[in-house]
Design a protein around this nucleic acid. Structure first.
Lengths: 221, 221
DNA sequence: AGTCGTAAGATTGTTAGACAAGAATGCACG
DNA sequence: CGTGCATTCTTGTCTAACAATCTTACGACT
């Protein structure tokens, strides 16, 4: 890790930029599971004040990307099997509601279709990190297209940990590249046909497969 | 509002205590919709430093109990009809998943049963505020009993705004006291009988009724 | 008189430095 | 070899201050 990381100041807030920078490094696996992040370390590395680092850490903690209790140093969490099951139970709850609502309208969200294409490109070129990003983008697009601010916020609470886990374990390396794309296509097709039940079923199947891939990476391998 | 409010220091953190105190005042309607809360005002009223007040405001904002954008002062939000519908759509999604899971086990959570009794007492004595608290406790107990940390956290993100809206509009004054209790009882019965579908249906019906009461309070009255 | 722009005030964002309290670590002693 | 205490690290909170942004009101110009 370099002694000073540079922050893009696109967002007007310094805290936002710091939060985003750390977030990316965690979900991409640059900061490994179990790593400790102290306030002063981040503050000196990024050249910001300690309260700023503190604020960023608190936001990340709220999203489950860090674990932190009073007077103790924040660490990148290691999700065990039980937690991964809990994570996917919650994820399936949200995304099922999303695809059902979308199927009720029959409209396939354009962003999801775009992400689907990006997945295929990434899989063809063996760009695993892009593949993870595009997969997250696909599911995020589905939820966002419902237009429910609160459903979207609940999903953000979940998808961060999913991203973290996929990034750390790089589970996509195990999936036949075409498998994920096919499962996604089945979901989109059901949405287009206006079949809420089918869409929900295809989604649940897809996420159970994804969970299985993560768990097998966790135990065996 | 008194010039100085006292904080209970049960939680070891000052920020926690401040957060809890403000949260209660918002959801009980003591601080009305649209009211502005500046950092310095809270800091002087509670006799804490501005950064402490800032941290508490940020937490409340994360839960939807305050609205805040960069460089602007936080205000207690006013939920319009569209937002209340969105709120209940999200709420039904979570709570349906919860009662379905509970029905799969056939175990009626003890806390929910206790809250049910509390509702009856509060209704008998015409203690409207207690009635709201007990109603929130009932639904929270249902979700908590599932034992999913993430489902619980998503529910927290939702129930705060529900509490806020009920507290501000005092919608329970419109409900025949026994109606709510009966609808709750139907949910618990379906859980005990191990009927996930029925439990989900009873829950959806109950929440749609509750939404209707809120919306009618909003428009007419 | 009405409207627009500018200046003053208010509020938040960020920083620095400091002290207290809780947690973790290692060393000395039994 | 294990236990207990002291040191050290880290976080929680505070005070003080300056910069950046937003709001408001006043004044000038049309």
């Amino acid at each position: 890790m370099s002694t000073e990381a540079r922050l893009e100041l696109g967002p007007s807030s310094l805290t936002d930029a710091l939060y985003e920078s750390i977030r990316k490094r965690i979900v991409n696996g640059e900061i490994p599971q179990g790593e400790k992040l102290t306030e002063v370390r981040l503050a000196t590395e990024y050249n910001v004040a300690r309260p700023t680092a503190k604020a960023a850490l608190e936001r990340l903690t709220a999203l489950g990307l860090l674990r932190r209790t009073a007077h103790k140093t924040a660490v990148v969490p290691v999700l065990d099997e039980a937690e991964i099951r809990d994570l996917f139970f919650s994820r399936i709850t949200i995304e099922k509601a999303a695809v059902s609502a979308l199927a009720a309208t029959g409209q396939v969200p354009a962003d999801a279709a775009r992400a689907q294409v990006a997945i295929e490109y990434a899989a063809r070129d063996r760009l695993f990190e892009n593949q993870v990003e595009a997969d997250i983008a696909f599911h995020t697009a589905l939820v966002a297209a419902v237009g429910s601010r609160r459903l979207t916020r609940m999903h953000e609470l979940i998808i961060g940990e999913v991203h973290l886990t996929m990034g750390q374990y790089q589970a996509h390396r195990k999936a036949a590249p075409t498998t994920v794309a096919e499962e996604h296509a089945a979901i989109l097709e059901a949405i287009q046909q206006g079949a809420p039940e089918d869409a929900a079923d295809h989604l649940a199947y897809h996420l159970e497969q994804a969970q299985g891939r993560l768990l097998s990476t966790l135990s065996g391998d």
